[in-house]
């Protein structure tokens, strides 16, 4: 907690110019990433993935398979890293934890009445407590978008702070659900609230609402992280989630991260991709770089 920090007036968060930020985000996509930079980037992307399954029909078997995949992305290609984490509902945390052992792969649990967040505060706290007690290393919470849009910033702030306290040692990711906030100014304001309230990560989306992660939205959040770092000296991590399924796009995100926040953020402690289908596309590209030819999707496991 930043007890000693002055909490700013969120009504006067930095302004964002829509045209400017979209133009800047587009500029990152003109970087041409080749050869060894590409291979390094792709491996880094794999290592930054939060492999996710968040469905009502999730079963023990599916989670276990996903956990195996997290550690063995594509054994035909030697020397690949593991993913960063597995992201599941709280009821699956124990199963995932057991399946991952001491592989280093974290278990992240979505909590606080994910994905809508439409529950009273005490229910959200209990949800979080349960996930932490089951062994979750990370908690992905959602903010109360209704309250935020009403302008009840103190409510949103207090809720995040309360969940952070409940998390204990687990790292807290705060999902803004940017698709429901609509404007970049609001994304920026929500980012500021989350960081000052104690978020370890800020995250774009649940993946259940469209649009989910976009490059301009992510850029607005990265710039918020940079400003927070300038002011407090504290690093905050970033997780774009939903809609990133192609290697090329993921590399553009890395370019944006590197050129906005720099080297210190270029690892899975400070940056994650919330994605389920991205990994296979990255693997396909890595195999292409290694062998010179594209392989059929049938050569990559679907978990």
């Amino acid at each position: 907690m930043i007890a000693t920090q002055t909490i700013p007036d969120f009504n006067i968060s930095s302004r964002i110019d829509q045209v400017g930020v979209e133009e800047k985000a587009k500029r990152f996509t003109t970087r041409s990433i080749k050869t060894e930079t590409k291979v390094n980037g792709l491996k880094l992307v794999l290592n930054m993935i939060d492999l996710t399954t968040l469905e009502g029909k999730d079963s023990k078997g599916k989670v276990q398979q996903l956990c195996y995949k997290a550690q063995h992305l594509h054994d035909a290609y030697p020397g690949l890293p593991t993913v960063a984490a597995i992201c599941v509902y709280p009821s699956m945390v124990k199963i995932a934890k057991a399946a991952l052992g001491n592989s280093g792969v974290k278990v992240a649990a979505v909590a606080t009445a994910f994905p809508s967040g439409q529950a009273p505060k005490d229910v959200k706290i209990r949800d979080t407590k349960f996930a932490v007690a089951e062994g979750a290393d990370e908690i992905d919470m959602v903010i109360s978008r209704g309250k935020f849009l009403e302008g009840e910033y103190n409510f949103v702030f207090d809720e995040i702070a309360a969940i952070k306290e409940t998390c204990g040692n687990a790292r807290l990711k705060v999902i803004l659900e940017t698709g429901e906030l609509v404007t970049y100014d609001k994304v920026r304001r929500a980012s500021d609230i989350a960081m000052y309230a104690g978020a370890d990560f800020i995250k774009t989306s649940t993946g259940k609402i469209q649009p989910a992660a976009t490059m301009p939205v992510t850029l607005v959040m990265l710039e918020a992280i940079r400003d927070f770092y300038y002011k407090t000296g504290k690093m905050i991590a970033m997780k774009p989630a939903g809609g990133i399924s192609k290697s090329k796009v993921a590399l553009h995100y890395l370019v944006m991260l590197q050129e906005t926040l720099g080297e210190a953020w270029m690892n899975n402690h400070w940056f994650r991709f919330g994605a389920s289908s991205l990994a296979n596309d990255v693997l396909m590209q890595l195999e292409k770089e290694r062998t010179g030819v594209y392989q059929s999707a049938n050569y990559f496991s679907v978990d």
């Binding site: 990433i33 080749k34 290592n47 592989s103």
Partner: peptide, 22 residues
């Protein structure tokens, strides 16, 4: 969980100033 979990964080060079020539 006996031992401390191993660190899976990868650090690779993705240096903007030295992107591979394109």
């Amino acid at each position: 969980m006996a031992k401390a979990a191993k660190n899976n964080t990868l650090k690779l060079k993705f240096d903007t100033i030295n992107y591979a020539p394109a």
